[in-house]
Amino acid sequence: MFARTAHTLARQVARAGTRAYSDAPMAFTFASQSQVFYKEANVRQVDVPSFSGSFGILPSHVPSLAVLKPGVLTVFEEAGTSKKYFVSSGIVTINQDSSVQVLAEEAAAVEELDLASARDILSKAQSAASTAATEEAKAEALITVEVAEELVKAAESG
């Protein structure tokens, strides 16, 4: 029994070491409702915030679908530069051919964020949450608070 388990583990370890990650660029599309940031651009890596945890996407990533949570999405371009964007929500799709699509509800370059405005949005959302008359209104306000908190963090980092 032990020998069979050891043999199975040895095969799995050997297979794990054969996965070929590549420095080859991957086709990346990133858009919000109002703007296209990248359209089938070749990039090296994309780091995304998701409800299952933040993760990085490299060429040959396992095909996946994830829901974005509010936070900073980082794109590592072919030239070695990186750009950061705040996303409020959305989805990320990683395909078998290594192409990646990010569709965000709202998105903006981090350097374009105004910290004072972000703090004002957070303050108003917190006030709305504390004075909400219905459970529905409170839930909506708490969602806005969560997004605004991440918006403030992004603006502070930019």
Rank of each mutant, 00 (worst) to 15 (best):
13 V>D: 05
21 Y>R: 15
90 G>H: 01
134 T>Q: 05
139 A>M: 04
49 P>L: 03
92 V>E: 00
154 A>G: 07
101 Q>W: 03
83 K>W: 02
36 V>R: 04
124 K>H: 15
12 Q>L: 15
120 D>F: 10
51 F>W: 03
27 A>K: 14
89 S>D: 09
117 S>C: 10
105 E>A: 05
107 A>N: 05
30 F>I: 03
80 G>N: 05
12 Q>N: 14
128 A>I: 07
35 Q>S: 02
20 A>F: 14
63 P>C: 01
121 I>N: 06
91 I>F: 14
79 A>H: 06
82 S>Q: 12
9 L>W: 09
78 E>M: 15
157 S>K: 12
79 A>L: 11
58 L>Q: 08
153 K>A: 13
66 A>Y: 00
24 A>I: 13
32 S>I: 08
61 H>P: 04
44 R>F: 02
17 G>Y: 04
145 V>F: 12
29 T>Y: 06
81 T>E: 10
128 A>D: 15
33 Q>Y: 01
87 V>G: 00
65 L>A: 05
44 R>I: 07
114 D>M: 09
24 A>R: 11
147 V>S: 02
47 D>R: 01
131 T>W: 03
78 E>F: 11
129 A>F: 11
45 Q>R: 10
14 A>V: 14
64 S>Q: 04
147 V>I: 14
94 I>Q: 07
126 Q>C: 09
136 E>I: 12
10 A>Q: 11
19 R>T: 14
69 K>Y: 02
98 S>Q: 11
131 T>M: 09
57 I>V: 14
64 S>I: 00
20 A>V: 15
109 A>M: 10
108 A>D: 15
137 A>I: 03
158 G>C: 12
120 D>W: 08
35 Q>M: 13
93 T>G: 09
79 A>M: 04
143 I>D: 05
72 V>N: 03
133 A>G: 14
121 I>G: 11
54 S>G: 12
109 A>P: 14
60 S>D: 07
109 A>W: 01
53 G>H: 02
153 K>E: 15
68 L>Y: 00
97 D>R: 08
26 M>S: 08
155 A>P: 10
23 D>C: 00
55 F>M: 10
73 L>Y: 07
82 S>L: 02
138 K>C: 04
64 S>D: 09
99 S>Q: 13
27 A>T: 14
149 E>Y: 06
93 T>L: 07
